Structure formats: C-alpha cells, structure tokens
Simulated assay, not measured.
Amino acid sequence: MRGLNIAIAGCGPCGLAAALLLHRAGHQVTLFERFDTPRPIGSGLMIQPTGMAVLDQLGMLDDVLRRGSRIDRLFGKAEDRVVLDVHYAALRHRAMFGIGIHRASLFAILHEAVQRAGITVHTGRTLVDSEPVGAQRALRFADGETSIPYD
C-alpha cells in the first residue's frame, strides 16, 4: 500500500503525536497550526496508562517520566463527600500509574521530535472548512486560500 498524504489540524499534543505515528508508518504528513509559532496552551495535564503506551511506542516515555511526576492515587471530595478515590494499584495491572506533567514539557518533547523527523508545519493557518476533491479533501483557511487535496 502506498503512503497517504495526510493533513493534520493543530500542533497540540494529539496532533504532534498523530503526525509522528503516521510519519513513522510511512505516510507523508503536513501539520497546520493557527498560531504563528506552535506553542503549548494551558498548564498541566495528566497522562493515563494508555497515553503512556503511545509515548512508549514513540520512544518518548523516558523523557516524559523524567519531566513529570508519578501519580498513584486520585482523591477528590465535594464538601464532606468523597466523589473520587482511584488507586492505580487496584487495577488489573499493578504497575499502572499516571503522570502529572506541565503541558509545555510534553509539548517540547513532541514538537522537537516532529522537527527532527522533518515533518512540515505550516503556521498562521486557521482552518475553517474542508471540501471534497474527488476521493480527497482540500482544506479551506480563514484567509480564503485552499490547500492541495489530502487523503
């Protein structure tokens, strides 16, 4: 099967990770970002075991573990009532845990990998729609321009 020509909207953690996985699978990937410079938005986030599995497949889990903090339990109360009490150790796989990490740290790890891979990133491109072009779709941007067709 030939590699596909894929467009991804957004350079957030999901867009960057998807671009890396698709690129490594042999596809031509182009990222479109609405900001003039890709950057993290927000403060912290928590990575669950499924996210860690993706980062491990990308070869980035060790970097994330070094920059984040291990979380073994989530506990929350609303007034006098416990509304959340999750112990990762109670799950089937005892080695499970979460990672608390600042969004900028995760972004840096993923963005640097995208740059090293040579994946094209077009900045200042606000996507507003897409339109069919045969079996493909072209992206329409806020400035009225339309992209080449992508798979």
Rank of each mutant, 00 (worst) to 15 (best):
R2T: 12
A7L: 10
A7V: 08
A7M: 12
I8T: 04
A9V: 15
C11I: 11
C11W: 05
A17P: 05
A17T: 13
A18K: 08
L20I: 12
H27I: 12
Q28N: 00
V29K: 07
L31M: 12
F32Y: 15
E33Q: 10
G44T: 13
G51K: 08
M52E: 12
A53R: 15
D56K: 09
D56L: 06
L58C: 09
G59L: 11
M60P: 05
D62H: 13
L65R: 15
R67M: 14
R70D: 06
D72H: 09
R73A: 07
L74I: 14
L74V: 14
G76K: 13
A78R: 14
E79R: 12
V82I: 15
V82K: 11
L84N: 10
D85K: 10
V86S: 03
Y88G: 03
F97Y: 15
I99F: 05
H102R: 12
A108V: 04
I109K: 08
E112S: 11
T120H: 12
L127Y: 08
D129L: 01
V133F: 00
A135G: 10
R137T: 06
L139N: 07
R140P: 00
F141N: 10
D143I: 02
G144M: 03
G144R: 02
E145G: 09
S147A: 05
Y150D: 06
D151E: 10
